[in-house]
Nucleic acid binder design. Structure first.
Lengths: 215, 215
DNA sequence: CTGTGTAATGGACAATCGTCCATTAAGCAA
DNA sequence: TTGCTTAATGGACGATTGTCCATTACACAG
C-alpha cells in the first residue's frame, strides 16, 4: 500500500507523552492558549488524534501536566545557575535576580506560557497548584536570604522587614516579566537588573554594590 | 443630540452598543476571555444574536471597543482621585499609588480583564494600541513627578535616575496587580502601599515619609 | 509460525463556534 | 392611514471544538 512511509506506528508511550507536553507548551507559547486546541497540538506533535485521550484522559489533564513540566523547566535552569555562585546571602539574591532575568529563563516562550497558564489557573485547580508551588519556592529562597542578610540570628523586626522586602522584590520581578511580555524588543535585561539593584540598595544600604564594575 | 427624550425601550442603538461592551467586559471578568463567546455575550446583554455583527461587524471589533472602554474606566477613576490631592510631586506620586491600589481601580473584575486583554493584545493590534496608550499616560504622569522631585530644573543625570525609578515603580505596581490576581483574598492594599513606599523612600530618601501623616 | 495484549489510529459524534442574512418590528413623514 | 427607512431578530450555515471508540498495527510469548 505505502512504499516509503517512514512514519509507521512507532511504539514508545513515554516519549509520546513527553512529545504531547512539549507540543502543548510550544503551542501556548506561539499561538496562545485559546488557539491551543486538540487539533493544533496533535498536528504539532505529528501524532494521531486519539493520543491525548489515551495518555491523559482529556485536554485539561494535559494542560496540567504541561504546567508541571513548565515549572520543572524553570527550576532546573534556576538551580543550574545558582549552583555556579557562592552562597553569601547578598550573592544569592543577586544570583536569583540574574537567573530570573536571563535569556534561558526569561524569553518570549516562557512569558507567553507563564501568562497563559496564570489565566487558566483560575479555572483549573491543578494548574493553580503548580503555579503556587513554583511561587512559594522562589519566595522562600529570597526570604531566607534577606533574613540572613538583615540580622544573624533574625529578630522579630528583621523578619518583618525581610518579609516586606521579599514581597517587593518578587513584585519587581513579576513586573519586569509583564514589561518583557508587552514590549519584548524594547526590554533591556541589564536595565531591569540595574533598577532592581538600585531599589534593593535603597532599602538595604551597602549590601548590593553595583557601580564598581565598568560596563 | 437632544438632552431628554429617553422614553424608548426597545429601540436605542447607542445604549445597545454600550450594553454589549459592558456585557463583554463582565464576561471576560467572570468567565475568562476563552469563554467569552458571542452566545455568552448576547445572553448576558439579553439582546439578539445579530446585534454584534450589526453594531461592530464582528467579535474582534467588539473586543477592541471593550478594551477602549476599559481604558477609559481606568483613567476616569484615576483622574477623579487625583483631583482630590495637592499637586506637589511627592504627593502626586503617592496619590497615583494609592489610586492604582484602591478598590475602585484594583479589584477582581479589573485584574481579570487586564490579564485577558493583555494576552489578546498579541493577536489584536487594536487592543495592543489601547493597552499601550494607557501605559504611556501612566508612565509620563509618574516620570514627570520624579523629574520635578529630583531636581528643578532637571539635569541629564536626574532625568536618567527619574527614568529608572519610574520604570521600577511601574514594575512594582504591575507586580502587585499580578499578586492580587493570583491571591485576591491574601492580598493587602495597605501592605502593598507600604512596601512600595519603603522602596521609594530607599531610592529617594526623605521625600516619602510614611508613618507621620494619616491625612 | 500463531495467539494475545496493548499502543496507536482516525473518524464519528453532538455541541458549539463566529458569520451572515432574510425577515420582522418600530419610528417618522406624508 | 400608507409608505419608507432602519433597528432588531433569530435561525441557517459551514467550520471546528473536545470526547470517545471500533478498528488496526505492532511487539512479544508461546
Amino acid at each position: 500500500m505505502d512504499g516509503g512511509a517512514e512514519h509507521t506506528h512507532s511504539r514508545d508511550p513515554k516519549r509520546h507523552r513527553q512529545l504531547l507536553i512539549k507540543a502543548t507548551l510550544d503551542s501556548v507559547a506561539e499561538v496562545g492558549i485559546a488557539e491551543t486546541t486538540i487539533s493544533a497540538i496533535i498536528k504539532r506533535a505529528r501524532l494521531s488524534r486519539g493520543m491525548i485521550h489515551l495518555h491523559f484522559g482529556g485536554k485539561g489533564s494535559l494542560l496540567a501536566a504541561s504546567a508541571a513540566s513548565f515549572s520543572d523547566e524553570y527550576y532546573v535552569e534556576m538551580d543550574r545557575q545558582l549552583a555556579l555562585t557562592s552562597n553569601s546571602p547578598a550573592e544569592t539574591i543577586l544570583a536569583v535576580l540574574r537567573a530570573d532575568l536571563s535569556p534561558e529563563i526569561l524569553n518570549e516562550r516562557s512569558v507567553a506560557i507563564w501568562h497563559g497558564l496564570r489565566g487558566e489557573a483560575r479555572y483549573n485547580p491543578e494548574i493553580a497548584g503548580y503555579s503556587d508551588t513554583r511561587d512559594k519556592r522562589l519566595r522562600s529562597m529570597i526570604n531566607d536570604a534577606f533574613d540572613a542578610l538583615l540580622s544573624e540570628p533574625p529578630t522579630v523586626d528583621s523578619k518583618a522587614i525581610a518579609n516586606e522586602v521579599t514581597l517587593g522584590t518578587l513584585a519587581l520581578l513579576e513586573g519586569m516579566w509583564v514589561d518583557y511580555m508587552t514590549h519584548p524588543n524594547a526590554f533591556s535585561r541589564e536595565t531591569a537588573a540595574r533598577i532592581i539593584t538600585r531599589f534593593l540598595n535603597g532599602v538595604i544600604p551597602g549590601s548590593f554594590n553595583v557601580e564598581t564594575t565598568a560596563s
